[in-house]
Design a binder for these strands. Structure first.
Lengths: 338, 338
DNA sequence: TGCGATTGATAAAACCTTTTAACAGCACGA
DNA sequence: TCGTGCTGTTAAAAGGTTTTATCAATCGCA
């Protein structure tokens, strides 16, 4: 018999049905003020019975907190954004906070439009995500009356920012290769003007020392393919391992190696970066790679914006979340050698 | 000098600054009621100057329309959802409607939680998306007080539903192959318990007639690989074209063909399905495939939920949006033969 | 001049909830 | 008997907007 009517039940309905005033009803439901235990129970029972649910708009209007946040992204295909957004949404739904998704397509007009809509809706905070680190946010976010958290994107100096720990991730990959006895490790990665590519390459250099060679190119399979062909065509010693800047590159690398009849992992071990399952699972052999823990990144960003919106202090600056090594078969780990 | 204060400007501020009552201010800004042209201009100018933006919560509370909708999805990786969601968001932002993104992870508890949050927020409608067509929605959506639009998922009989036109898409692929002179066309596709796979296979059968053979398996590269090996290992005539149920399958098919030293497209032409650029662009040769126009699907779903939320009639039933043939090089079209 | 119609503006109500301040009732101690 | 303090409840205000009904002023016309 709950809420068979057409109209949503309000706290007036609860109050009337329980024979109390709306203030008492509100107090009873929220446990605020002073209420007789017996009354409180009755009100709550009645509310449950008639299917009362408080109107979030009215609540937000009064409290000036909408319990909603906005996510501004310029990632079109969602490979990075959606797992992260799912993480944000997952951690926030339990706190009664919902997430507006705003795709900007890198269009400043669209970004501005979305931003204004978010502010009009009194969102409690904004998470800004970019796929390209070095691109300016398409819109001015620094002097907003609400907190902003940056993920995969660098904000102003004193802002709260989350990144995967590219340095640690790269070290994880190189260390894994070294432990398996590889010594001539090559690095094939994306464009030099990506900060992530530079950091990973630096970390690789630090770990490998003198013989290290990092080849910058594109974030594409084709580039991986091409780079391998170049390396194996020139004279001199060949690498016995390749650390790739992305799973896509790794895929191109693996294909090229097979074309050259180079055995994986016997002759050359390959490590990727991303753990983009749809690629990493499908290479032959399946790809050992570095997972950036996107969902965890989303969790942390969600919790950060939640704290900030409550006025709780959150350490400013860049937080780098550790990556995780996912061992499959492209390195011939003794644990999973088949 | 616009809005330098700490507090958001309200219509009271506008009214005071313009020397009118709030009713007049409201009327002037919205063009409702009767207002002197001169007054109207002045109010608007003042509003602009002090940076007034109406509070969407207050507005929604009164009008009972929040100008927000919810998107419920169980797609984790976002390959289908995010392009679609971007389409929805893109078309709705111009109408002042924002989108809540709710990832359910196929968890009924989570779905229920999200649904209740959406209802509490008075959303004007819900778009439900699934990746698996045949799965039940994780939550009861049929008797909601707000309209629901289904995309990639079948709702109750009289609901508004959008799908890509799998039948037409498959025909597009087969016709393309036939026009190029191919006659022994094989179909390798996903599991038979996917409705989309069955429809595409049926369409393929209708177009190819007697010699047609559809092989059902997985939505994976591996399956494409395996299927090709099977076919080319057995006696009898070999296909001169393969129509694949997904780009991933096509990728496996192409790899297997190359392993067998079968020339593409000379010996065998290959068509995919999805136009998942990150795959289709990277196969060698680049893959001719069928695009499901996900963004357009999002546009249409967005417009439908918009109309429904305004009480405008929308034709019920399943609308199937045409797919598009994307010609690359895996069929050796005379137009793009290099 | 007087009257109905029109124009422009406004006060007040409404949306639904939470919170503050006030109130009535009662027990207790002086 | 009179304050004092406590308990449980409630009226009223507040939040920011839109809408309805009302009001005052002006205009046209007899």
């Amino acid at each position: 018999m709950k809420n068979t009517g057409d109209r949503r039940r309000t706290i007036y309905d609860v109050a009337k049905a329980a024979g109390v005033s709306i203030s008492t009803a509100s107090n009873a439901l929220n446990g605020t003020g002073r209420t007789n235990a017996e009354t409180r129970e009755r009100v709550r029972r009645v509310a449950e019975e008639i299917g009362f649910r408080p109107n979030a708009l009215a609540r937000g209007l009064l409290s000036k907190r909408s319990h909603a946040i906005g996510m501004l992204t310029n990632d079109t295909y969602g490979r990075l954004t959606l797992p992260m957004a799912a993480g944000v949404s997952e951690v926030l739904v339990d706190h009664g906070v919902s997430v507006f998704l705003c795709a900007t397509n890198n269009d400043p007009r669209l970004a501005q439009l979305h931003l204004e809509a978010l502010l009009d809706r009194q969102v409690d905070g904004i998470i800004f995500t970019a796929t390209r680190l070095d691109l300016e946010p398409p819109v001015q976010l620094s002097r907003l009356p609400i907190p902003v958290v940056y993920v995969f994107a660098e904000g102003p100096a004193d802002s709260v920012t989350f990144f995967p720990d590219d340095e640690q991730g790269a070290r994880l990959a190189v260390d894994h290769l070294k432990e398996l006895g590889r010594s001539r490790i090559l690095h094939i990665t994306g464009p030099r003007d990506y900060l992530a590519a530079r950091i990973r390459a630096q970390s690789y250099h630090d770990a490998c020392g003198d013989g290290a060679e990092a080849m910058f190119g594109e974030w594409s399979e084709e580039w991986g393919h091409e780079a391998v062909q170049t390396v194996f065509a020139r004279p001199g010693p060949k690498p016995d391992a390749i650390f790739c800047g992305s799973d896509e590159i790794a895929r191109g690398v693996i294909d090229a190696l097979r074309d050259l009849n180079v055995e994986i992992p016997t002759d050359v071990a390959v490590v990727g970066f991303d753990n983009w399952e749809v690629v990493a699972r499908q290479t032959r052999p399946p790809l050992t790679t570095i997972d950036m823990e996107l969902k965890e990144l989303g969790h942390r960003a969600g919790l950060a914006i939640l704290s900030l919106s409550k006025g709780e202090p959150v350490p400013a600056g860049i937080t780098r979340l550790p990556c995780r090594l996912v061992v499959r078969q492209s390195c011939g780990s003794p644990l999973q050698s088949d």
